[in-house]
Computed example of a mutant assay.
Amino acid sequence: MRVDLFDFELPPELIALRPVRPRDAARMLLVRGTDPSAPIEDRGVRDLPDLLNPGDVLVFNDTRVIPAQLEGRRRDGEAKVGATLHKRIDLRRWQAFLRNAKRVKEGDALVFGGGVTAIAEERHGDGSMTLLFEGEEPVEVLLDRAGTMPLPPYIASKRAIDEADREDYQTMFAAKDGAVAAPTASLHFTQRLVDALDERGILRETLTLHVGAGTFLPVKAEDTEDHRMHAEFGIIRTEVADRLNAVRAAGNRIVAVGTTSLRLLESAAQPDRTIAPFEGDTDIFITPGYAFNAVDGLMTNFHLPKSTLMMLVSALMTRERMMAAYAHAIANRYRFYSYGDSSLLLPGG
């Protein structure tokens, strides 16, 4: 499909630079069914318990964002270099996208803040490089000392990253270090909202997908067939898969909280619509025409024009339905992107 079919104009003032407080005070657009002319409801995140049925399950991503943005220079010169860690390779090596990458050669030593140094070992086809962090301290300790939260470019280009982002850009479910971007649909959840979901009888499960910086890369191809999707590491434990299959067998719905949860669930889905345990990389690219086997709904924020995530929600709800929903959101001044408002997409109504 042509990538420009997923384009739309967004007034820049609708890009949220800070989250609402409290988190569950965000608005939520309810989209039921795939008929482009069907009504769309303006709701709030706090309405979520009333919009799901007892026995339905929400699936969250428990990845934890690490301070993966580093600023420094080449050790042998004055060339300034920025690094955004993308994907862990082993205990001391990470793939990273570099700013001013043309000034960095394989074998160069890079010096970051806090006395943190790394060797640029290998350049990859996507333009990233492998960084080998020196020393004996765990890389997570080094990042806590030298790194900042890797906010999306559409926020970081408009304001400085500060201490508030250390908390704001982390979900209440964050437990497993490894993400360089937040599973932002979960940013709306508070203990009060979780308690209300529990009281309603709505179940919760967690999986882990370590979101990489590739999630922000633009689609440069003119056709979706020519786009190469980035890979990310994920885990679905056996007991989680078993409980999710029991939910489906009982006639209830599996609703992914965020596109990261959805992508991992669909990567683990079998042709009979069961979910298998999973551990490994996934580079699944979901576009219209894809047959969903794992999920019955999705809670997600609003996505960038011509992005892979805009294609994903269009696959779930149809492109026409999502373009109409986004037009409604823009006309009604919803807040967009990572710190913005939410939507609940239920293709079955």
Results as ranks from 00 to 15, higher is better:
D272S: 03
V104T: 05
E279F: 08
P218K: 02
N301A: 09
A96L: 02
V295S: 06
K102N: 10
D165R: 02
I155R: 09
E140C: 11
E279H: 13
P271T: 07
V240G: 00
M1C: 13
I15T: 12
N245W: 03
I155K: 08
L197C: 08
E266R: 07
A101F: 05
A164V: 14
L193N: 06
S342I: 05
R93V: 03
I40T: 13
A179G: 03
V57G: 01
G44K: 13
V211C: 04
N332I: 10
D56V: 13
D126N: 11
A231K: 14
M311Q: 09
G135M: 10
N53S: 15
L132W: 02
E13H: 14
E225T: 15
A120E: 01
L70P: 03
E106S: 07
F336V: 07
P12N: 11
S338G: 10
D281L: 15
F285T: 08
H303L: 08
E106C: 00
A16D: 00
V295W: 01
F292M: 11
G77P: 03
V3A: 03
D35I: 10
A294K: 07
L91W: 12
E78W: 11
D242V: 14
L217N: 09
H188Y: 09
T282P: 03
Y326C: 01
E41Q: 15
I275V: 15
A269D: 05
E239F: 07
A231E: 12
G113L: 13
N252T: 11
M311C: 09
L187G: 00
V180T: 15
E41A: 15
E222D: 13
L17P: 01
G33M: 09
A101T: 03
F6H: 05
T318G: 06
D162K: 12
D47A: 13
V20Q: 12
Y337M: 14
R319L: 13
D47G: 11
F278Y: 14
M317I: 04
V180L: 09
S128W: 04
L143V: 10
S157E: 13
V255P: 03
R253S: 11
G82K: 11
R43F: 01
S261H: 07
F233S: 09
I89S: 00
A156R: 14
D223F: 03
R88I: 11
T208R: 07
N100F: 02
Q170H: 10
N245P: 12
T34Y: 00
Y154L: 07
I254W: 01
G289N: 10
N100P: 01
N301R: 05
S338K: 07
V81Y: 04
A174S: 12
P277K: 08
E136P: 10
R103C: 05
G113I: 08
R103K: 15
D144I: 13
V180S: 11
G214H: 05
P218Y: 00
D272W: 05
